[in-house]
Design a protein around this nucleic acid. Structure first.
Length: 441
RNA sequence: CGGGGCGUAGCUCAGUCUGGUAGAGUGCCUGCUUUGGGAGCAGGAAGCCGGAGGUUCGAAUCCUCUCGCCCCGACCA
């Protein structure tokens, strides 16, 4: 993509409404625009990041055996009356009336709808287990939206739902998602710690929140520092190995880690040595629940067992805040100059800077590199604009692409270009060929 | 939902107390000079001062109502 043609409205100054660093940087880097309180438009740069996050989430869900579907944003109130949540959810639910006076709502979550879909199609234990997910916009009419997309009213969420015959089966599904979440966040270079959590209005009695430690987080957490040093999971996880999964889950739940609601000061002090105690704030990026028959029972999702008896299926639900992750990643990875994207979610891998757009030699070298990078399938933002060098450097640092390839008249004369790594700032001069080899390796 | 604050140029803000008809920086446009970390000079465009009503000879400024946004807390993913 050529910078001169790209819709990238960066800002030199920080808009007044932005308080936390991710919100500031997202606005300054031209990723998002606020439409109204807690509701945002995603501009090209931000949308690329969102799509990358979504892709990683999707790949890991698929790998865990979860099947993607797509449910609507607008739902009928009927199912919610059956489950009892039409009243319980309160004002956070955006209620809508259609032209016929029917009560509708903008879905804040999808347990009711998925249960209805499931029960209409599945009648026998033979059809279990099932794991389904979708990635869809949700709306929760927060009293006080804040922190940009970190706590918006409209947000993109991946929600999965598991259906099993009994607790053991549901526990396997829970473990699969637990492990898939560890994988998902690790691929985004995030240290997400699974913490014992409250179930809230979803209900149920087994739940973990996946939390990234960050001072700007909204949740207060207590955990053992050793979690930070845990090795991340490789891509060789075998999801059919039930015992193997259980072992991984046991390992990642062996140390004390709890959200505020579940915190027990005495137990914390007993189980965690003083120098290992961490009390701080965190950002919730995922939340998984087992809730048994809380929805299957009232909504009538029963299957026939081998002995011809009927049983309400055991269910769990598993959420990842896809849009929130964009902000959480920035909270975890930035410096004074701007965003530092992990390569897996970066909007482009390389920023190619032509330091002197009017110079024939610089432009020739840049065009050559640009063509070859694109030919190799590398995503590159080519700053071919007439701006001065300083402005280009500052903007490239701000938007945080992992690699900067700088082509200037001084280097071109000597047959070299400069390759700079955004994280850490290491830079080296080398030939175009070597630089291309490095970037396409 | 309690408490506080803010709406003036694309952005950051001054001007409001004490009423007299709109300002700065930055960004944008033009030209010249520059060109390796957000350049310099000169010229220029750009705002029914969030909206409605009222007071007044006269309102960005005072009064009333209203809409929007932000922050703290409670709540929540």
């Amino acid at each position: 993509m050529r910078r001169s043609a790209y819709f990238l409205p960066t800002l030199k100054e920080t808009p007044a409404e932005a308080q936390i660093v991710s919100h500031r940087l997202m606005l300054r880097a031209g990723m998002i625009r606020q439409a109204s309180a807690g509701i945002y438009s995603w501009l090209p740069l931000g949308f690329r990041v969102l799509k990358n996050i979504e892709r990683i989430v999707r790949e890991e869900q698929d790998a865990a055996g979860c099947q993607e579907i797509l449910m609507p944003t607008i739902q009928s109130a009927d199912l919610w009356k059956q489950s009892g949540r039409y009243e319980d959810y309160g004002k956070e639910m955006l209620r809508i009336e259609d032209r016929h006076g029917r009560e509708m709502l903008y879905g804040p979550t999808n347990e009711e709808l998925i249960t209805d879909i499931f029960k209409s199609a599945v009648k026998s234990y033979r059809d279990l287990p099932k794991l389904l997910y979708h990635i869809q916009w949700k709306f929760r009419d927060e009293v006080r939206p804040r922190f940009g997309i970190m706590r918006g009213r409209e947000f993109l969420m991946k929600d999965s739902y598991s259906f099993d015959l009994d607790y053991e089966g549901a526990r396997e599904a829970y473990n699969k998602m637990f492990v898939a979440y560890l994988r998902t966040f690790a691929r985004m270079d995030l240290k997400a710690i699974p913490m014992e959590a409250d179930t809230g209005p979803i209900g149920g009695n087994l739940s973990h929140e996946f939390i990234i430690l960050a001072d700007t987080g909204e949740s207060e957490v207590h955990c053992n520092r050793d979690f930070v040093d845990f090795d991340v999971l490789g891509s060789d996880v075998e999801y059919r190995d039930v015992e193997g999964l259980a072992k991984i889950v046991d390992h990642f739940t062996s140390l004390y880690a709890r959200t505020d609601e579940k915190h027990d000061a005495a137990e914390f002090e007993r189980r965690v040595p003083e120098d290992r105690r961490h009390v701080g704030r965190g950002i919730e990026v995922g939340h998984i629940f087992y809730f048994g028959d809380k929805y299957s029972e009232p909504l009538g999702a029963f299957v026939t067992k081998p002995d011809d008896s009927q049983v309400a299926v055991h269910m769990g639900s598993y959420g990842i805040g896809v849009s929130r992750l964009a902000g959480a990643i920035i909270e975890a990875s930035h410096d004074d100059a701007g965003i530092v994207w992990p390569e897996a979610v970066a909007p482009f891998k390389v920023g190619l800077i032509n330091l002197k757009a009017g110079d024939a030699d610089c432009t020739r070298v840049c065009e050559e590199i640009y063509g070859r990078l694109r030919g190799a399938g590398i995503e590159v933002l080519y700053d071919d604009s007439e701006e001065r060098g300083g402005a280009k450097f500052a903007e490239m640092d701000l938007i945080g692409l992992p690699w900067q390839l700088v082509v200037g008249p001084r280097g071109v004369k000597q047959g070299v270009v400069e390759l700079k790594q955004r994280r850490g700032g290491d830079r080296q001069e080398l030939s175009s060929e070597s630089a291309l080899a490095r970037l396409t390796a």
